[in-house]
Amino acid sequence: MCTSCAARIDRLEHRARRDRRLALFALAATVVALVAPLRATPASAASGPRVASTDSVLRVRGLVVVDGQGHDRVFIGAPLPDPSLFGKRRSRGGNYSGILLLDANGDERSGYATTDSGQVMFTLDEVGRMVANFMAQPAGGVRLNLTDEFDNGIRLGTSREGPFLDFVKAGKSVAQLPGGSKLP
């Protein structure tokens, strides 16, 4: 390779490095120019009227959370809608307000709600049937009911008459504490 050629190559490489530095500087300057006004906005807006902030209160009658397929999965409402089973709604038999959880098929599986008559309850459901119900009366009593698909279950709680416990097999009471008591 000739000496003049090597010198020429050195000059070209030097110019190329300089051009790259200039390009990077221009890019950085552009980004700063674009971002700076955005960062300045909150400070300049602070003196003006507040349009929205994190302490805003949302007042609605209902809120539905949907999954990636667009299916309703969580419902918050006052009142809650009637339950849907296999695509058809069924009467809930009263006004309930609170939170519902639905499975991927749209069937209701859990609820945490108050009734207009003053009860508050937490429920767990298999498809189409409540299997656990933890409920407090407005005054004077709380109870927990657990059942399975064979109508076996346990009922326990307290009332004005005292605590109670009831074992149920195939829908019939088989043992009670206190013995012979009439469950509230």
Binding site: G70, H71, S84, F86, G87, K88, N105, G106
Partner: peptide, 22 residues
Amino acid sequence: HRGTVTDVAFSPDGGTLAIAGT
């Protein structure tokens, strides 16, 4: 359908189908 298919019904001649959904 986007959602659950809630009902299907045949016309009396069996040639037409009505389909409803959520």
